[in-house]
Design a protein around this nucleic acid. Structure first.
Lengths: 140, 140
DNA sequence: AAATATTTTGTATTAATTACAAAATTGTAC
DNA sequence: GTACAATTTTGTAATTAATACAAAATATTT
């Protein structure tokens, strides 16, 4: 938790109790949670937490590059405390979102260019969709 | 318009007047339009068109692979009648969405794999975000 | 033409997100 | 340490994209 404080500070984010709890949650739960999921999980320990704070904080984290906003789920935004370059996969049956790292996808890094033609690139989101192994094996 | 009819039929979509008009619009406007934009554009020629029909039809087109649902815009879903493999870029200043084709991105094709590990891939969406040349030059 | 299936439509609802201003907290100046 | 200022948090209300649903319209089959 102390390291979370430093992590936020070093990225220009003043470490309030709420912000530390939210960052901590993202760092410990790499499940690409929704706002609802984060809110429910934190409510027991932060009973006054408001959704507005959560939305504001996640936006701040995204701006300051300590979290990724994922648009892979068509119903809602998901968040990821892991900001290293990687791709995501969502199972269209169970809805689960999984990481795909470079060792499975060697071409990935080269896609994180700073410029393409005349366009200045600030971020890249790579989203795969399909059916996960667990769900595929259910119809056997 | 006759070719649009055949295009839909050959993809297992019964070509109603509404469906042809919507498909036609997507094929002629490669601007990655929102539901609102398609609706406003078609209303003069299809005055009874309902939003529900539009949503249903675009979902059908996506399922039948004659259109792409794009999640690049955090506010709303956008649609693309061009189903050839390509990536997209959204300018965070003006909101415009642009195509990025393979000649600018040689590694792209290899990302369209059918399988990664145990995951069956059915689609890939690659979204770049940043600032377009036009918007970047405004602050000069 | 009657019966059936499909498509379209309009209304009502849901649910994610944002706007906004008051309250609380934190930091700074004296 | 108290007063003042800035920041953060909170709750409520509003917005808006998207969906549910059943009736109406259209197309297809018998």
């Amino acid at each position: 938790m102390e390291q979370t404080k430093d992590y936020l500070s070093s990225h220009g984010i003043r470490p309030s109790a709420q912000r530390m709890a939210i960052m901590d949650y993202l760092l410990k739960h790499k499940t690409h949670p929704t706002v609802e999921e984060i809110y429910s999980a934190l409510l027991p320990s932060l009973p006054t937490l408001s959704k507005t704070t959560l939305y504001n904080t996640l936006k701040l984290f995204s701006d300051k590059k300590v979290a990724l906003m994922l648009n892979i789920d068509e119903h809602t935004t998901r968040f990821d405390g892991d900001v290293k370059p990687h791709a995501h996969f969502q199972c269209q049956v169970c809805g689960g979102v999984y990481d795909i790292f470079e060792d499975e996808l060697p071409e990935l890094t080269s896609l994180y260019k700073e410029q393409i033609g005349e366009l200045e690139i600030s971020s890249v989101e790579i989203s795969y969709r399909g059916v996960c192994a667990k769900c595929a094996n259910k119809n056997d």
